[in-house]
């Protein structure tokens, strides 16, 4: 499901993307590089957690399994960034930043840009599917409307 994006409008300029990771989050970004979304789930109590953390917030277990998710979900909230607070981002605006709740993950949410649609058409509850934004060092989740 790799997409060559026609322009950078609507996405953070690649030079601003960072892959700062810890041992707890590294598997997420490793899978992202292969365009796979994985969400850590506690092997002990079954609670999902995002961003990945060493400890389960529900039972403090260290045991984790990485569950693959298709990334399809509904838009939970969003903002359309119209004004460049950071001046160097002016060229890529507007950016629609979406918060998407991943079904079946006890409410884990993923944050990504919503692309491939008119910002005016974006609304909470909008069905979305996962896409990936490829930059030099890896891939970042983003979303497109789901038919």
């Amino acid at each position: 499901m790799s997409t060559q994006l026609p322009s950078t409008t609507g996405l953070l300029p690649p030079e601003f993307v960072a892959f700062t990771a810890s041992p707890a989050t590294e598997p997420f970004w490793d899978a992202a590089r292969e365009h796979r979304l994985v969400v850590p789930r506690c092997s002990s109590c079954g609670t999902f957690r995002l961003p990945p953390a060493v400890f389960c917030w529900n039972c403090r277990s260290l045991d984790v399994e990485w569950i693959e998710h298709d990334g399809a979900g509904d838009l939970y909230s969003y903002t359309v960034i119209r004004h460049a607070v950071i001046p160097s981002m002016a060229d890529v605006l507007p950016i629609v930043v979406g918060v998407v709740e991943l079904p079946g993950t006890n409410g884990c949410r993923l944050i990504g840009d919503v692309i491939g649609c008119d910002p005016e058409s974006v609304h909470i509850g909008m069905p979305l599917l996962l896409d990936w934004y490829d930059v030099a060092d890896g891939s970042v989740p983003c979303f497109r409307p789901r038919a």
């Binding site: 601003f16 960072a18 700062t20 930043v97 979406g98």
Partner: peptide, 15 residues
């Protein structure tokens, strides 16, 4: 950036 914060900053959420 922190390992947690890149989950939002990579979408452009910075302000």
């Amino acid at each position: 950036s922190t390992p947690e914060y890149v989950f939002s900053s990579n979408a452009g959420l910075m302000a």
